[in-house]
């Protein structure tokens, strides 16, 4: 029987999760090891975001278990098929996040807070791919950033980086 933990989101929703799944989070693993995780574990993460975090963790857990049960026979082909499956799953996961940027950025913060390096790296790559090649003005709009350069400063800094603005 798997050991279950109850995670409580910031908006007081309870998520029952297997220890193996949630231990991917270094933050929670440490809480469990320290004996601090009795009863409900309160997290500074919204229920919407926590659901996404768990979706990711369950997928990763699934993958690890399958690999442990592998024998060597035909392993390379099987790995390739699995890689394709994971790619497909990740693409779907990415598309959902791209469509809802609030969740994406919330998830980014949550993966940092929960110390999930694989998810953090995946999300950072996703954001990097979304912003690569964009112009400063597009970026300011996208992230609601104020241009705090004076017009003179902006002119100088843009001229200095003229090479970056070539097509």
């Amino acid at each position: 029987m798997a050991i279950m933990y109850a995670l409580k989101s910031s908006d007081n929703e309870i998520f029952e999760v297997e220890q193996k799944v949630i231990e991917q989070s270094e933050t929670i693993k440490k809480m469990i090891e320290d004996g601090a995780a009795t009863g409900e574990i309160p997290l500074q993460v919204s229920s919407k975001t926590l659901a996404k975090v768990l979706e990711w963790c369950k997928q990763r857990q699934h993958k690890t278990v399958e690999n442990e049960n592998d024998d060597n026979k035909g392993k390379r082909k099987k790995e390739r098929d699995e890689d394709d499956d994971i790619k497909e799953w990740e693409n779907k996961f990415s598309d959902e996040l791209k469509a809802d940027k609030d969740v994406l950025f919330d998830l980014l913060l949550a993966s940092n807070y929960l110390d999930l390096p694989a998810l953090l790296s995946f999300l950072c790559q996703l954001v990097a791919d979304m912003v690569a090649g964009k112009m400063p003005e597009e970026i300011r709009r996208m992230f609601n950033i104020e241009n705090d350069f004076t017009p003179e400063e902006e002119k100088a800094i843009t001229a200095e980086h003229g090479w970056a603005f070539q097509p």
């Binding site: 940027k101 609030d102 950025f105 980014l108 913060l109 940092n112 953090l120 790296s121 950072c124 790559q125 954001v127 990097a128 912003v131 690569a132 090649g133 964009k134 112009m135 400063p136 970026i139 300011r140 992230f143 609601n144 950033i145 104020e146 241009n147 705090d148 350069f149 902006e154 800094i157 843009t158 980086h161 090479w163 970056a164 603005f165």
Partner: peptide
Amino acid sequence: MVNPPQEIKFNIFSKLPVKTLGRFKCVC
């Protein structure tokens, strides 16, 4: 949303090409 911790920005920026970073130096 605008201000994630510095290390997240480092992580994202480190995955970008130098040319994009040249542009991003002009953002703020």
